[in-house]
């Protein structure tokens, strides 16, 4: 009796999941479709026309990726340095790190971009403004300052993630590995870093999403990335709703996979932690 009941329960579970999927999909479709048809009564969507501009979007995407990539490299390396500063035994270094982190975290990124470009690069640096070459790659100076601002700003967030990751590893772990005869480097490599990595990775992926999202603000200093592209072409043709929807889907294609990955990693690491 128990067995048949169990089999019945299992069949019911599969049925339930299928039903849930169908119901969810139809509910979501229904809500979106209802919303769309309400909009359609007041607005004529011309998707065909809007989609002709995908080339411009793709160009914008390249710049968004370049800015985010440069910014990410800078943010990761500077973030690590600042994290180490904040963990240093010298109060002066710690305070410098603290000041850096807290003054950047608490101002809007757009203000920082404007400050870096108009308040600093354009105003303070001597003219003429040269293009910057990095490893044989000519970087437009707007892109350079934009990516620099992005990197400096995100470094303040990254450093906090690194710091808490490193601090989360208990001293006893180092003691234990050292007492097993491991060298400092070995205990770092086999014991401390794998554990710190686990703590760092989920929030880090979240921060990468934030960085990509922030790169949209480089439009304020006329970097021709995705958002500025959308803004420019919607000035030329009155298809703003369509253009901005396409813009949104471009961002979602970049960020949603990262967020799914982050979710997956978080769960995996959680299981590991539970097992240990």
């Amino acid at each position: 009796m128990a067995k048949t009941h169990f089999r019945k329960a299992q069949e019911q579970r599969i049925l339930k999941l299928t039903l849930r999927f169908i119901l969810s999909a139809s509910l979501i479709t229904l809500v979106l479709w209802g919303f769309y048809s309400i909009l359609e009564q007041n607005y004529i969507f011309r998707w065909g026309l809007a989609l002709q501009h995908l080339d411009s979007f793709n160009k914008g995407l390249m710049l968004t990726l370049q800015a985010s990539g440069l910014g990410l490299v800078l943010a990761l390396s500077l973030g690590l340095i600042v994290a180490l500063l904040r963990l240093s035994p010298f109060a002066l270094f710690r305070d410098m790190g603290t000041l850096y982190v807290h003054s950047l975290r608490n101002i809007p990124f757009i203000v920082f971009v404007l400050f870096m470009y108009f308040g600093f690069a354009r105003a303070v640096l001597p003219r003429p403004y040269p293009n910057i070459t990095l490893l044989g790659w000519d970087i437009d100076d707007r892109l350079f300052w934009g990516a620099l601002a992005l990197g400096l700003f995100e470094a303040s967030f990254m450093s906090e993630i690194f710091r808490s990751g490193i601090q989360s590893i208990h001293k006893t772990q180092i003691e234990a590995s050292r007492s097993l005869g491991m060298s400092y480097a070995q205990s770092m490599r086999y014991v401390v870093l794998p554990q710190a990595f686990r703590v760092i990775i989920p929030p880090l992926t979240g921060e990468i999403i934030a960085l990509i999202k922030e790169s949209a603000l480089l439009l304020a200093i006329a970097v021709n990335e995705l958002t500025l592209t959308a803004k420019t072409i919607s000035g030329q043709r009155p298809l703003q709703f369509e253009f901005y929807t396409i813009l949104a889907s471009y961002y979602l294609t970049m960020t949603v996979p990262i967020s799914i990955l982050s979710h997956y990693l978080e769960q995996r690491f959680n299981i590991h932690r539970r097992r240990s």
Binding site: L39, N42, Y43, I209, I212, K213, E214, S215, A216, L217, L219, T227, A230, K231, S234, Q240, F241, Y244, T245, L247, A248, Y251, L252, T255, V256, S259
Partner: peptide, 21 residues
């Protein structure tokens, strides 16, 4: 959806998109 979009894009969508309708 909203977590994974830049705030600016949401603003543009609402202002220029919904704002027209």
């Amino acid at each position: 959806i909203f977590r994974n979009l830049p705030a600016l894009v949401v603003l543009l969508l609402f202002f220029f998109g919904l704002g027209q309708v």
